[in-house]
């Protein structure tokens, strides 16, 4: 008896999914994405197909994600939003993303945000996380995200809101911040200090 073939694509999709599953289950902990494809492509291929829709803030990425068969839609209608980098000019598009309804909180958007190079200069934010998946309190530091993201995220009250995944394409890692996680911004300072 020989089991069906575990194809490279199958392996990549499963590894990317497991990274997301553990990212959502253990908010604030980095998980490894498969190294067989660029991070955003691996994530797109693991999740997107004809039944889904996406918005990508980057032209080249949008073209590649469209190959999955998923429909490109404006940010207010898309299920999955991809921001390879998030700058202040993207916040307008992000603010329109669906936050779900009380009857169908699962209709809220899932958002992937690329973090710039960790060695890049930029404002570092220290976050204290609490909630499901976090044993007590967890402190993490993230660099290169506009402060406006946190204001927008705080506008939705649980169980509504976005499930956010931060992606570090350089290191091939993903960190989850599902809507169930309570975030407190401890302090903000720039790297030059």
């Amino acid at each position: 008896m020989f089991e069906p073939l575990y194809t490279p694509q199958e392996a990549q999709d499963r590894r990317a999914f497991l990274a997301l599953l553990w990212a959502a289950s253990q908010p604030g902990c980095w998980q490894s994405l498969p190294s067989t494809a660029p991070s955003f492509i691996a994530l797109g291929q693991a999740l997107l197909d004809l039944e889904t829709s996406f918005y990508a803030a980057d032209e080249a990425l949008a073209r590649q994600l469209a190959r999955t068969g998923a429909r490109a839609l404006p940010p207010e209608r898309a299920d999955y939003l991809f921001f390879p980098v998030l700058r202040d000019e993207h916040l307008e598009a992000l603010s329109q993303a669906q936050r779900g309804t009380l009857l169908y909180p699962d209709s809220a958007a899932t958002i992937f945000i690329g973090l710039s190079d960790p060695h890049d200069e930029g404002v570092e934010l220290r976050l204290t996380l609490q909630g499901p998946g976090v044993n007590g309190l967890l402190q993490i530091a993230l660099r290169g995200i506009p402060f406006g993201l946190w204001t927008l995220r705080a506008q939705a009250r649980y169980p509504l809101g976005w499930d956010i995944y931060f992606v570090e394409p350089e290191r091939g890692q993903v960190l989850g911040l599902p809507r169930s996680t309570q975030v407190r911004l401890s302090e903000a300072h720039s790297q030059e200090e």
Binding site: Y6, D13, A24, S25, L47, D163
Partner: peptide
């Protein structure tokens, strides 16, 4: 692989991520 076709697995995986988030 694992019996279910790629579409079926992707769909269930998407739902599973939502389930964990809520």
């Amino acid at each position: 692989y694992a019996f279910m076709d790629a579409f079926a697995k992707r769909e269930l995986r998407r739902r599973m991520l939502k389930a964990v988030a809520i």
